[in-house]
Simulated assay, not measured.
Amino acid sequence: MPPDRYKLWAEVLKVDPKEFMQGLMRYYDPYGYEMLFGEFPQPRGVGNDNRDVA
């Protein structure tokens, strides 16, 4: 998605533009996201240790 369309997408999806950008950054640049916003929870079953998977 071209960066000049981020705000439009946020408006169409009825999401706060800042939250939309944070969500994109979380997936596109997880290291940058962690530096700016701290760690975020990993989805269940992700990682080397599968203790949280039923």
Results as ranks from 00 to 15, higher is better:
Tyr33Ala: 03
Glu19Cys: 02
Pro43Ser: 09
Gly38Thr: 01
Phe37Pro: 00
Pro41Glu: 11
Glu11Thr: 15
Gly32Glu: 09
Asp4Pro: 01
Ala54Lys: 14
Gly47Ile: 07
Gly38Glu: 03
Tyr31Pro: 00
Trp9Thr: 02
Asp49Gly: 06
Gln42Phe: 04
Glu34Ile: 13
Arg51Cys: 07
Arg51Ser: 15
Leu8Tyr: 05
Pro41Asn: 05
Arg44Cys: 06
Asn50Thr: 11
Asn48Lys: 12
Gly32Ile: 07
Leu8Ala: 14
Phe20Glu: 04
Glu19Gln: 14
Met1Ala: 14
Tyr31Met: 00
Leu8Cys: 04
Asn48Glu: 12
Phe40Glu: 04
Leu24Ala: 10
Lys18His: 10
Met35Trp: 06
Pro30Glu: 02
Asp49Asn: 12
Gly23Pro: 02
Glu11Val: 10
Met35Val: 09
Arg5Glu: 13
Pro41Lys: 14
Asp29Phe: 06
Val15Asp: 00
Tyr33Gln: 01
Trp9Ser: 09
Glu34Leu: 01
Gly45Arg: 08
Asp52Gln: 08
Val53Phe: 11
Phe40Met: 00
Gly23Ser: 06
Leu36Lys: 12
Arg51Thr: 13
Gly32Pro: 07
Tyr33Asn: 03
Met1Cys: 08
Tyr31His: 02
Arg26Asp: 00
Val53Glu: 05
Val15Glu: 11
Leu24Ser: 05
Met25Ile: 14
Asp29Met: 06
Phe37Thr: 03
Tyr6Glu: 12
Tyr28Val: 11
Leu13His: 10
Glu34Arg: 13
Glu34Thr: 15
Asp29Tyr: 06
Lys7Thr: 13
Val15Cys: 10
Arg26Val: 00
Arg44Met: 12
Leu8His: 03
Gly38Asp: 01
Arg51Leu: 15
Met25Leu: 14
Leu36Glu: 05
Met35Tyr: 00
Tyr31Arg: 09
Gly23Cys: 03
Phe40Asn: 04
Met25Asn: 05
Leu8Glu: 14
Asp29Leu: 03
Pro3Ala: 08
Arg51His: 13
Pro3Glu: 12
Phe40Asp: 01
Tyr6Ser: 09
Asp52Glu: 09
Glu11Pro: 01
Gly32Phe: 08
Asn50Met: 14
Val15Pro: 00
Leu8Asp: 11
Gln22Phe: 02
Pro17Cys: 07
Glu34Val: 15
Pro2Asn: 12
Val12Phe: 08
Pro17Thr: 08
Glu19His: 00
Glu34Gly: 02
Lys7Glu: 15
Gln42Ile: 06
